[in-house]
Design a protein around this nucleic acid. Structure first.
Length: 427
RNA sequence: GUGGGCGUAGUGUAGUGGUUAACACGUCAGGUUGUGGCCCUGAAGAUCGAGGGUUCGAUCCCCUCCGCUCACCCCA
């Protein structure tokens, strides 16, 4: 047994898996570009306070999922469990409010949460996220949702569904929470133990409980959208109207309003949304996000609205695989140089350097193997050609270039970079 | 943190209370004179997850631990 293994909840992405990641990452970058979201990279760790204040003390993330450590200087740092807080910190730190608003940014990278791993859930997870900061209009909400939807469609993942809700803001939420508490007070004996805990600490999350015994109670609970203040209500109505406008482009964007969708992070205001795959089983959320109009101020910046989403790339990749939405392209070097003898070995190495410098993919067959073995190697590498160099070829200064992927004729080509490059590129 | 399932070569699997633990794929080598794919032959590769117990004897039975996995919680 190997003495070391990848830490629990992490995994290696071996070369054969990389095409799927390249596809997802490249598509993410292209999608972000189409929408005008420039890339931002922030540190993988931040001051612990940033997450405690930004994400919220009462959240599961802060309470039990953070990788927190003290560095040698005595500062408490935390491996980032999510992306929004760091991006907002950067927005404040670099005075991005002086740029045209909203500032649109996207990010791709790893995040860390100490959780029990399970299908689609890891301790190191990779996310593609976007943030639009500095514009509170509902148009931006829908733009962000459109971006996420477009991305998923670009990956040929069909059948996804969008759920959306509005949880109000600091103006109207207190009244809603009062109503919610009052309602649950009448059912406190019927809900699960966890919910009794949440009753005081995080009443919104009562709605989110998946236990069957709590389902009916949650369904009949007061709805946040019935308590919205005028400003939030107008915003919410606009979001829905704008969302309907996307149906011309995306006929299958059949969103549903889910009054029990509240999200688990404290910073959300107004619009919250999630996208799930077709056969949504439990915690398979592909994308989740919402508006966070109070966050920037909470972590020390001026009052600034913002909205964004994060998408789980690990889950996206498994969707891509399960749906055959992507076929890895055929790969392999242009040529493997098969060489016999010391002299040929030297020539092979020199020619390989020249051809690579010319832009071609070149492998030199492993040293010390028989010609048959080298040819087998060339084949298993899925090379387009084998270039054979032995005593005869050195003498004549012409190598034998043999096509491997099709049944073309083997031909003699002068042993210099120019002639070989020309032949390898197909005249 | 709480439950269920599972731990046998690199990978995927078989197997039995008793001698050298099997098969496929993969890897490496060979199939006469310098030529791949298919085929054939051979080799390397496993302290049968770890520790303890029952037994004359355990990979197999029992216990503990560890690991993987699925689910709950929650999220991406």
């Amino acid at each position: 047994m190997p003495s070391f293994r990848a830490p629990r909840g992490t995994y290696d992405i071996l070369p054969d898996e990389q095409p799927y990641w390249s596809f997802a990452l490249k598509t993410a970058a292209e999608t972000a570009k189409r929408f005008g979201y420039g890339r931002i990279d922030t540190p993988m760790f931040e001051p612990t306070d940033l997450f405690e204040r930004g994400v919220g003390d009462a959240t599961d993330i802060v309470q039990k999922e953070m990788y927190t450590f003290e560095d040698h200087g005595g500062d408490s740092l935390t491996l980032r469990p999510e992306g929004t807080a760091g991006v907002c910190r950067a927005y404040i730190e670099h005075g991005l409010h002086n740029q045209p608003q909203p500032v649109r940014m996207h990010y791709i990278g790893p995040y860390f949460r100490y959780e029990r791993p399970q299908a689609g859930r890891f301790r190191q997870l990779r996310q593609f996220g976007v943030e639009a900061i500095g514009d509170g209009s509902p148009n931006v909400d829908v733009e962000v949702i459109e971006l996420g939807w477009s991305y998923i469609r670009s990956l040929n993942i069909n059948g996804t569904s969008l759920r959306i809700n509005s949880i109000g803001d600091s103006e109207c939420r207190p009244a809603y929470l009062d109503a919610l508490r009052e309602y649950y007070r009448g059912h406190i004996d019927e809900v699960c133990d966890d919910d009794r805990q949440r009753f005081e600490s995080a009443p919104l999350r009562l709605l989110d409980c998946k236990r069957t015994q709590c389902q009916g109670i949650g369904d009949a609970a007061p709805k946040s959208t019935d308590f919205l203040c005028d400003a939030c209500d107008a915003h919410w109505a606009s979001v829905i109207a704008l969302l309907d406008g996307l149906k011309d482009t995306y006929p299958d964007l059949d969103y549903s309003i889910d009054h029990r969708l509240v999200r688990g992070l404290d910073y959300y205001t107004r619009t919250v949304f999630e996208i799930e795959p077709e056969n949504a089983a439990g915690q398979s959320t592909l994308l989740g996000g919402g508006r966070y109009d109070g966050l920037i101020e909470e972590i020390g910046g001026p009052p600034t609205p913002g909205i964004g989403f994060a998408l789980g790339l690990d889950r996206i990749i498994s969707e891509v695989k399960s749906r055959e939405g992507f076929v890895p392209p055929e790969s392999g070097p242009d040529v493997v140089i098969v060489h016999l003898g010391d002299e040929a070995g030297l020539r092979a190495s020199a020619l390989a350097a020249g051809l690579r410098d010319d832009g071609l993919g070149v492998l030199v067959a492993p040293v010390g193997r028989s010609m048959r073995a080298q040819m087998r190697y060339s084949n298993s590498m899925n090379a387009r050609y084998a270039l054979i160099i032995g005593d005869r070829e050195i003498e004549s200064a012409e190598g034998a270039l043999r096509p491997l992927r099709d049944n073309g004729e083997q031909e003699a080509v002068a042993l210099n970079v120019q002639a070989l490059a020309k032949a390898l590129r197909g005249d």
